[in-house]
């Protein structure tokens, strides 16, 4: 059970880190895009919220498998059954949980701080890092917490893609699934309670932080 806990934590950490690198710039672009194309891309990014994990898992299996484009590119037979495969899957699966709150935060700033920074002759890059990012930190924190918690509990995509290898792809929720099927309800109960407790704390911290930031802004 502990290797699975460690693996899930590792997967959630790596995924959240990658999502910060990918999701925040993407959220920035989408926050400033006004046309149809911007909304279409935003809708595409938001899809994993409503799509069943089996649909995502199915496409990932095609994408990462031996007949897909990615594995041969890396000189591998398949990316299924690997930690790398799970990371790719998790980044796609949790993408909206990072992009959505950060995009909203950027939108909430309005154009004023950005234009002020540019008027003071800050370069766009400088303005992004020293004005936009700090002002959107509430949304970024929400994105981090949601992405991390969402990936930590990931099940469907991993079941479709992982092959249940202890230490490599056997994540926490898969252990719970197997435990229930094997009538090992003691361990399943302990893991489930841990997961429920952690998720509650994560969401609570998020709400408290949001409340505090709203007060600071006022």
């Amino acid at each position: 059970m502990w290797p699975a806990v460690a693996l899930s934590l590792e997967l959630a950490t790596v995924t959240t880190f990658l999502l910060l690198l990918l999701g925040v710039p993407l959220a920035w672009v989408l926050a400033r895009a006004n046309g149809f194309l911007g909304e279409a891309v935003a809708a595409l990014v938001a899809l994993p919220i409503v799509l069943p994990p089996t649909v995502i898992g199915f496409y990932l299996l095609l994408l990462l498998g031996p007949h897909g484009p990615i594995a041969p590119l890396l000189g591998l037979r398949t990316l299924a059954f690997s930690f790398t495969g799970l990371v790719i899957g998790s980044v796609i699966y949790s993408l909206p949980f990072m992009v959505q709150p950060v995009r909203n935060a950027f939108r909430g700033l309005g154009p004023a701080p950005w234009e002020a920074a540019l008027t003071l002759r800050a370069s766009p890059l400088d303005a992004f890092f020293s004005v936009a990012l700090p002002l959107a930190q509430g949304g970024i924190l929400t994105g981090i917490i949601l992405s991390f918690a969402h990936t930590l509990g990931e099940f469907g995509v991993v079941l479709m893609l992982g092959g249940d290898i202890p230490g490599r792809t056997e994540v926490l929720s898969i252990v719970i699934f197997n435990d229930v099927d094997n009538l090992q309800w003691g361990e399943a109960g302990a893991l489930a309670a841990g997961m429920a407790g952690f998720s509650f704390l994560a969401v609570l911290v998020m709400f408290l932080a949001e409340k505090r930031m709203a007060r600071l802004r006022a």
């Binding site: 299996l61 498998g65 031996p66 007949h67 037979r77 398949t78 299924a80 059954f81 092959g163």
Partner: peptide
Amino acid sequence: QFTASGNAE
């Protein structure tokens, strides 16, 4: 399925 899809040899 894992075998038929070629993901496992």
